[in-house]
Amino acid sequence: MKLSSEPPEEIRLNMTAMIDIVFQLLVFFIMTFKVVAMEGDFTVKMPLASVNQEESMEDDFPTVINVSLASGANGIIQSIIVDDDATFSDPNTMYAQLTKVIEEKLAGEGNPEEGKETEVEFDIAPELKYRYTVQAIERVSGKILPDGSVKKLIKKIKFKDNSGGA
């Protein structure tokens, strides 16, 4: 049997069509790409009234800290009142003072019994701008320590129902 001595032919694929499609895909993804800022959540538990009663009995009445946020003109925060016995109205320090009072109250309770966790109930003026509310929620949720770590304070946050006044 005689073998062919000719060198094998080089097979060449036409890449043009594939490159065209690939570039179209690339352009599509580049055009639709959008840089989105990171978002986070504050969890608020708002159980229904009947469920709330059952849970309260199970939880052996958790300690509740009442925080009132009062609004001034144009929905700007005017004062923060904690448990009707501490009022802060200096806009530069009121949030820091709120954190301090919450810390003191938690420290005063020592180690809470199992299932008896402290919660904060916010009573917020309906016209108060949402940004001030979030700032207050942030300040009772925790604080950033000098080393950059986060000290958690309150986990359970509730709103007093002021929805009818808006």
């Binding site: 003026a125 309906p126 016209e127 701008k129 808006a166």
Partner: peptide, 8 residues
């Protein structure tokens, strides 16, 4: 800037 009452 939403009034908190609306959120509630």
């Amino acid at each position: 800037d939403t009034p908190t009452g609306l959120v509630q």
